[in-house]
Amino acid sequence: MGTDSPGHTPDEVVDCLGQRCPLPVIAAARRMPDLPVGAVLRVLADDPAAAVDIPAWCRIRGQEFLGASTVDGSPAYDIRRAR
């Protein structure tokens, strides 16, 4: 996970800090249908399982995982709605 700022601006941010998996993945799945295709959703999640489960969810659901970064000291995962 990089400590640099991510290279894109999210259209939406969901804060799942303090939540345990699968809650961050569920939050991403709930939010995604409201976004237009091409929009970027950022999930803030500090459960270590999110680092695996969010990219895995993107693969299963055909969404584009853009990468992980650190935002204000918290792990952040960016997803682009692909479909």
């Binding site: 345990r20 998996c21 270590p48 399982a49 680092a51 695996v52 895995a56």
Partner: peptide, 15 residues
């Protein structure tokens, strides 16, 4: 409270 390192290494769902 960490996911399985095996599932993690495979990049598959852990929950």
């Amino acid at each position: 409270l960490r996911p399985s390192h095996v599932l993690e290494a495979m990049g598959v769902l852990t929950h």
